[in-house]
Amino acid sequence: MIFIAIILGCVIGALIGVNMPMISYSYSGYLAIAIIAALDSVFGGISATLNKNFDLKIFVTGFFGNAILSILLTYLGQKLNVDIYLAAIVVFVGRMFNNLAIIRRYYIEKFSKNKPKDDKVEGNNTEKN
């Protein structure tokens, strides 16, 4: 159900995104960091769903909040001549790997034992969204 929704969203998004106008090159750096933040939120959401501790408010605010905050931080970094976006990328990608590890462990346990044991899902870090 959830994965069908995700795939459907991705396909429709791709179809619309291909026909969208391009943005100016100078803004693409901000969009890139927002994409990384949003990607992190989505993976966080998926792993939280598998852990059964999904919270819609945290997810939605995390999705938009992280994206906007990372854009603002990148902008600030450009004004200060510090590559703050690198720190944001390290944090987001690190969390993305954590969440991917949680998802992976969940499915490995599910398929290897042929019975889901939701409580035994372990990740090094139980990030919510």
Binding site: M1, I2, I4, A5, I6, L8, G9, C10, V11, I12, G13, A14, I16, G17, V18, M20, P21, M22, I23, S24, Y25, S28, L31, A32, A34, I35, A38, L39, S41, V42, G45, I46, T49, F54, L56, F59, V60, F63
Partner: peptide, 27 residues
Amino acid sequence: KKKQIAITLGIMCFLLTIALCVQIKTM
């Protein structure tokens, strides 16, 4: 509740892929 979660995740993925496609096109 599960339906709500699915719809939200779907919308998020939708926004995310739009942004991704725009970014890839720009680059």
